[in-house]
Design a protein around this nucleic acid. Sequence first.
DNA 1: TTGCGATTGTAATCACTTTCACAATTATAA
DNA 2: TTATAATTGTGAAAGTGATTACAATCGCAA
Lengths: 216, 216
Amino acid sequence: MKKIQVPKESVKRLFLYLRNLNYLAQEGRETISSDKLAQDIYVSAAQVRKDLSYFGDFGRKGVGYNVQSLISDIKSVLGLDKKWLVALVGVGRLGSALLNYPGLEELGFQISVAFDIDPKKIGKTYREVKIKDSSQIEKIIKKEKIKIAIITVPVSAAQKTADVLTKAGIKGILNFSPKYLTIPENVKIKTVNIAIELGNLAYYLTHSESEARSFI
Amino acid sequence: MKKIQVPKESVKRLFLYLRNLNYLAQEGRETISSDKLAQDIYVSAAQVRKDLSYFGDFGRKGVGYNVQSLISDIKSVLGLDKKWLVALVGVGRLGSALLNYPGLEELGFQISVAFDIDPKKIGKTYREVKIKDSSQIEKIIKKEKIKIAIITVPVSAAQKTADVLTKAGIKGILNFSPKYLTIPENVKIKTVNIAIELGNLAYYLTHSESEARSFI
DNA sequence: TTGCGATTGTAATCACTTTCACAATTATAA
DNA sequence: TTATAATTGTGAAAGTGATTACAATCGCAA
Ligand SMILES: NC(=O)c1ccc[n+]([C@@H]2O[C@H](COP(=O)([O-])OP(=O)(O)OC[C@H]3O[C@@H](n4cnc5c(N)ncnc54)[C@H](O)[C@@H]3O)[C@@H](O)[C@H]2O)c1
Ligand SMILES: NC(=O)c1ccc[n+]([C@@H]2O[C@H](COP(=O)([O-])OP(=O)(O)OC[C@H]3O[C@@H](n4cnc5c(N)ncnc54)[C@H](O)[C@@H]3O)[C@@H](O)[C@H]2O)c1
């Protein structure tokens, strides 16, 4: 069987196309060209076509793409054609912001359970999500067959949390603690490090004007 | 003059090396090999050496890198050898989490001013940062010569906010609103989209087990 | 002083991603 | 029916990034 390999960046761009398509659908648009679809997201029309072509022939030559069917094709490709239950661990400043963030639901993610160790927080409810004691992570995640978790605990508790989550059957982790976590091979992880994103800006600000750099 | 080009990913990895180096410095370690430096961050020793070599000859053959001087060399390369003042616009759920996040200061970023339009928030103080009225963005940013801003306003206000910020002289924007913003050529922008990060997990979870996909 | 194990820096190679350019297809109007 | 304009899908070329492999250098012990 041929192992096709889709560029990681292509996958990311699918989400942007999807977002544009949703706008277009709202406007009642029926078909769209790769050229228009590429607009506002700084990619070329050829890139759009190439990205989509990794997954199928979704368009019609001379016509373009049907907005509605491309939406459902992309959703299907991305695994967004169903609802994903998500567990959140660590209901602090960042965790509670995420609990209240409607942007996740738009893509089909539902934070259905949250955990903390702070007795003052346990039992409270944020946006219909009741906060449970961390000691119940394994039991509840197993029972509800949740596959994705978000880690927003302090860095000191992050590895332990990851261990419990993977033991409970979690297959994908979105990690906000500034640390690489060690997890089993078959578990996917994505770490978001906001300080590094800012740091990148500092780098490019520092290096854009001075084309001449001393050490190169 | 030869335009050298450093891979974007190399720049990102420098932050990880820096983090490891800081741990090593705390432990009193004096020198370190590329091999050890690569540990825990899933890169090869050769990758570490290559990344560093874009910016200079920081190591000594047969010996390795001096921890302290590599820290300051990397900081200097990344533009982190000084304090960066940062403005934050939109002190809502996410914005206030960021205002209280110590991880930014560790890299030398200081949120020195925050803006909102909500009269209930204006005048309050979070972590020594007083929240000002949005109408004052241009005046204050110009006066304090701030170059980096974080946008955490609702998506509907994001473009307008970006316009005011760039007019005020901001050169780098960290954008959390789920939208590509149009800004002048010479302004750098980095958009963080948490829903897309989760979406990526869903994609890789959906596609890892089933090597055989119908449409390819 | 010499020999040896450790370790870097980098040229060459390999791998991956984007762009280019055009044949193939479609709708439409003459 | 035919010509024309629009538009896709994709092979080939170009561009970018990662890995390999090894000469060069270093510290140290004999
Ligand atoms: N605040 C931010 O803007 C921000 C930004 C980026 C990254 N982060 C990272 O996100 C994480 C959380 O940051 P925060 O600012 O929300 O911190 P926080 O201290 O406000 O919240 C952490 C929460 O985790 C809970 N907790 C601690 N140990 C736990 C455990 N073992 N199990 C379950 N819950 C536990 C605490 O009770 C608390 O409610 C940190 O790793 C931080 O570095 C935060
Ligand atoms: N909450 C999250 O976890 C989260 C995660 C990812 C991205 N985001 C994005 O971040 C942004 C903010 O999200 P949030 O959940 O904090 O929203 P929020 O509604 O809690 O906060 C938005 C804040 O911006 C203020 N505001 C509105 N218009 C403004 C203007 N013109 N100038 C200055 N301030 C203004 C509001 O008064 C409010 O305080 C949104 O674009 C959202 O999509 C949020």
